[in-house]
Design a protein around this nucleic acid. Sequence first.
DNA 1: GTCTATATAGGGATAGAC
DNA 2: GTCTATCCCTATATAGAC
Lengths: 207, 207
Amino acid sequence: MVRKMDKYDINTEERILKAAKSVFHRKGMYGARMQEIADEAGINKAMLHYYFRNKENLFKAVFRDAVEKIFINVSKFLESEGTIDESIKNFVENYIDIMIENIYLPPFILNEINQNPEKLSEFFKPLLESLPVQLIKKILKETSENKIKPIDPRDFIINIISLCIFPAIAKPIVKELFNMDDEKFIEFLKNRKKSIPEFIINSIKLT
Amino acid sequence: MVRKMDKYDINTEERILKAAKSVFHRKGMYGARMQEIADEAGINKAMLHYYFRNKENLFKAVFRDAVEKIFINVSKFLESEGTIDESIKNFVENYIDIMIENIYLPPFILNEINQNPEKLSEFFKPLLESLPVQLIKKILKETSENKIKPIDPRDFIINIISLCIFPAIAKPIVKELFNMDDEKFIEFLKNRKKSIPEFIINSIKLT
DNA sequence: GTCTATATAGGGATAGAC
DNA sequence: GTCTATCCCTATATAGAC
């Protein structure tokens, strides 16, 4: 796996991984073809097996990377310090930025989990267990102190995540529905960094 | 395609279609196997080709049915008469009922569209063009008359759809996150028939 | 219409030379 | 480490008997 290389070169393993991401993200585990990955990496199929032994291993490397990018950060931002309002703004802004940079990942991950739910325990369990404890406590506290409208913390968490992630999953439909090209679509997402926190904060604040 | 049959029997074509739905919904176009569909229908592979000629045709029949179930209804409920509040309640309640009955469809459809965006024009275009015109007008009117907080109608539409559909797409994660079995998960969705309209109406009403 | 048997191709994986 | 050639299984699809 280790190879002397030119400073400006990138090594074969990285080239493969990059190509594998591109193909798996678009086509999923079963739609992807090893040949296509090899072509995109500019090498031949045998190399894929030399570095990753089989398709399943290569896929897992890609999937693990995707989960880390998308879910490690959910965890981090959901648990931030400060008031609820600050937490919401912080989460949404950071999360939509991640989404814009990795627009293919949410459909890729969610599709894989729906088709293979057992992957959940293999990749997510440690993440999920520790996830939103702090935030739930914060919501319950603010509710009991009459600082926000009462809301089931589970609904709150699902709502904020839904509003951030769903447009990435429905991208082709959203673009078609509102006649957007890619640029307009990104602009739409960027605007949601402001509109989603407003939407959520309005809905929970006392009148 | 037509066959005399016992009153309590269902004909072969329907058996195939039913089995095909079950398998395609769970595994998608590329993960599904014709053999598995044949087994589940209780017939052999040759029959699949006799009735549908090839896998692609069979898949399209299943996909078309899914799109009609999920999107015809979006269109219908989004355009209902009455005040905005009534429209929201009407849409969410009806849509979550549909979701509960067809929990596999949203991930199935969205995955297929993400992997094959060209399917969009083939199956959706007529639907999408006529979609939310009335609702957009209603929102703009209420905004200009200072009856609700100003909101981009596109955000409004995406928000309401996100809140309804996302839990279906993330079902395995939601169940894991909150330690739900299937029954608890359905209960959670049913509760959202009330909580989502509250959430949305609070966020847009003037204080 | 329904079955068994088989053709054909595609794709993952390996062997072996360099 | 990288390549070419090839193996071999799997899955779609067809042929043909009943």
